[in-house]
Design a protein around this nucleic acid. Structure first.
Lengths: 273, 273
DNA sequence: CAAAGGGTTTGATGTGGATCAAGCTACCGC
DNA sequence: GCGGTAGCTTGATCCACATCAAACCCTTTG
């Protein structure tokens, strides 16, 4: 049961979980069932939470710290996403009771609520509103990845960086000064380039008014930067981030999808979001 | 109502739709409601079904022909998926009642069943089993895209082609001779390269026993090809394709998820499937 | 305070893949 | 059968990005 006392879960944490779009609409009873057996756990920085290929037994809810999701192949590694609180991750694997396709590693000290996968699947069966919320959440994730792929296949590295900076500005509602949330090395991997090349991409953006001092990036000429970046609502989600929870009920709603993939690497199966 | 007579929907088509994992588990009543107002439509080759940015009013079920999903930006274009029957597409947008992130175009003459989005959303609210099926379907799509991104960020073009061929072999259960399902020009875009480069990649695979004659590709030395391709169950889904429907209930289940994306291009929102 | 070490930057060089430009081949309609 | 057109291939060249190497900087630690 998810209440203060058990497993060290604090009432304030419960409130934060309830604030997630995934749980906001669920019946109170469902929330109780779904979180029965949940426990809060603390991890040091640089800890592997999950290795790709592992069976996934829990839905993870990141309450504090940062988590990196990455994939590896043939001694190469790439960052697929970096999560900040409050975020859930690994929902798709939980729904399908399948093994993880990506590894998860803490970047900082982290506080994570772990909800048993069985409980989630049971809750979905009992509460259509919750099942609907899961669908909406997954649909949003799916669309996020579509954006990601378009970003990578259609833009070069400098364009990706420029759009990343503009998106950061929109998310944090910062004027012309933006703070990078992660090490440049990780940012490079997320943007699909080497650290060396990220440096050079920043250098290339100087002529568009961008200057860098450590993690602080000053966008001195937004319109010049936008002229280069050509941000597009069908690739870049400029939903503002409000407070510590997600933007809106669903950032995808804020802006505005699809379903099913044959051929290409993934799914031989025939569904396309 | 979905029955022969109305809108030219044939009973045999209904059977094929019922065979989809998405509908297989739904209550009969739900199927009726969900398909009320559905209509079957025929399109010539090379017809735009949907333009990215358009509101999505229907769930599409491809019954015959091939459909290409693609994205554009700044005069560049890339193929994101190629669908073959029986496939649904655009489910994520339907669930969120959002605009399309990709365009859909027929490659051949196509036969498509169009189910109103309202009906799908209503059905989800009323039938938890159906909502569950939608979640599972979206989770599978999500995982397909994760595989896709890993494929693109971790492999070079020759490696992608080699794995594509091996996957085709597994899907069609063909021995050493594989038939390409689409024009090479489209395949190139799907694999993230130019047609010129696809030719060269095929040439490079000659030394690994691959020979090409039009759409017929002979894999003369599987182990040599595998040594180069290094297929990985966490990237390549080698689920066999059975009959005209999907592999299993869910190709992702056959082999084996996650939820929420911060940072990077897409989702400012915080969920990672 | 000095040494050590990790992250970042800068430069030199190599390579995968894009682009440009012909040719080639196969299908189609007259 | 012939000419046209579209897709595919091949070659030459160029450019984006990776790699290798070294210097730099900033933080940590004895």
């Amino acid at each position: 049961m998810l209440n203060s006392g058990d497993s060290g879960v604090r009432t304030s944490d419960i409130e934060r979980v309830k604030g997630l779009p995934l749980f906001a609409d669920a019946a109170p009873e469902t929330l109780r069932v779904a979180t029965a057996g949940a426990h809060l756990q603390r991890f040091p920085a640089n800890t592997m939470l999950l290795l790709e290929g592992d069976p996934v037994d829990f839905l993870y809810v990141l309450l504090d710290g940062q988590v990196e999701l990455h994939g590896t192949w043939n001694d190469r590694e790439t960052t697929l996403a970096i999560l900040r609180p409050v975020s859930t991750f690994i929902l798709a694997a939980v729904v399908l009771d399948a093994e993880a396709l990506m590894s998860a590693r803490t970047l900082d000290r982290c506080e994570i609520l772990m909800i048993p996968g069985d409980a989630i699947r049971t809750a979905m069966r009992l509460d259509p509103r919750f099942a609907m919320a899961v669908s909406r959440d997954l649909a949003g994730c799916y669309r996020g990845l579509v954006r990601n792929i378009k970003n990578h296949k259609l833009r070069n590295s400098t364009e990706r960086l420029a759009n990343y900076l503009l998106q950061l500005r929109a998310a944090d509602n910062s004027g012309g000064v933006v703070r990078l949330h992660h090490e440049k090395r990780i940012l490079a991997s997320l943007l699909g380039m080497t650290p060396e090349n990220l440096s050079r991409a920043f250098a290339a953006l100087q002529r568009h008014g961008v200057s860098v001092h450590g993690a602080v990036v000053t966008l001195g000429n937004i319109s010049a930067l936008e002229a280069l970046a050509k941000p597009d609502p069908l690739i870049d989600n400029h939903a503002p981030r409000v407070g510590d929870i997600i933007a809106d009920a669903d950032a995808e709603i804020w802006s505005s999808e699809w379903y099913k993939t044959t051929g290409q690497a993934g799914e031989t199966s025939k569904r396309h979001g």
